[in-house]
Amino acid sequence: MKRTPLTVRGAERLKAELKKLKSKDRPRVVEAIAEAREHGDLKENAEYHAAREEQGLIEARIKDIEGKLSTAEVIDVTKVDAKGKVVFGATVDVYVEEDDREATYQIVGEDEADIKQGLLSVNSPIARGLIGKEEGDECEVETPGGVRHYEIVEVRYE
């Protein structure tokens, strides 16, 4: 079975979402379905069909999260001795030559990625280019927007 890397924070977020889906969203939609059934003919009952559709989406998301958590390898980067190298979970300050700016990224699992928050998927071109490098190293990364040059300013494990 292929293990899926997750940060501790990512695993906690998935667990919190799963708890909300099971304890709040699922009971709410079951109640909405029961209420819509009381309105009679189900063939032309828009509320019933909408609630059933929402129930399907909730159940699919529950199944998806449970699957991810069952194959997750939760990595606590604060306990990893990476000897200054960029590894999964590390936070990396980089200088982006093309933009003449610094950026901060954390290398995270696929489901945690959010570029606007500086969370890079471990499978992204930038993350793959940075992994294994250390402070002071430079790397060239082929991105969808073209080749980018990065200099690693600092690597943290937080």
Rank of each mutant, 00 (worst) to 15 (best):
A46R: 12
P5Q: 14
R28A: 13
E38N: 11
P125L: 02
K20S: 12
E59F: 02
R3M: 15
P5C: 14
T104P: 06
I107S: 01
V74Y: 04
E112W: 01
K68E: 09
I62H: 05
T143G: 04
G10Y: 10
D100W: 04
C139Y: 03
L42M: 09
R156H: 05
E47A: 14
D93V: 15
E154D: 14
R61W: 04
G67N: 12
I62L: 02
K20P: 00
K116E: 06
K2T: 15
K63E: 13
L21D: 05
S121T: 00
L57S: 07
S23W: 00
L14S: 03
D114M: 01
R148F: 11
I75V: 14
E66Y: 07
L18K: 08
E35P: 00
D100F: 06
K20N: 11
G67W: 07
G132I: 11
E12T: 11
Y150Q: 07
G136S: 06
K22N: 13
I115M: 01
A127H: 04
E158W: 02
G118R: 01
V74R: 01
C139V: 14
I115S: 02
K22Y: 07
R61E: 06
G129Y: 06
D93G: 09
D99S: 09
D137C: 06
F88V: 11
E151W: 07
G132L: 10
A36W: 05
V141D: 03
K22T: 10
E98A: 10
R128H: 05
R156S: 08
A51E: 03
G146H: 05
K2S: 15
E47M: 09
V122C: 00
F88K: 09
K85D: 01
S121G: 04
V87E: 05
A90L: 08
L21T: 04
D81E: 07
I126S: 04
D25W: 00
L14H: 05
G118V: 00
K85M: 08
A34L: 13
L119P: 00
Q55H: 10
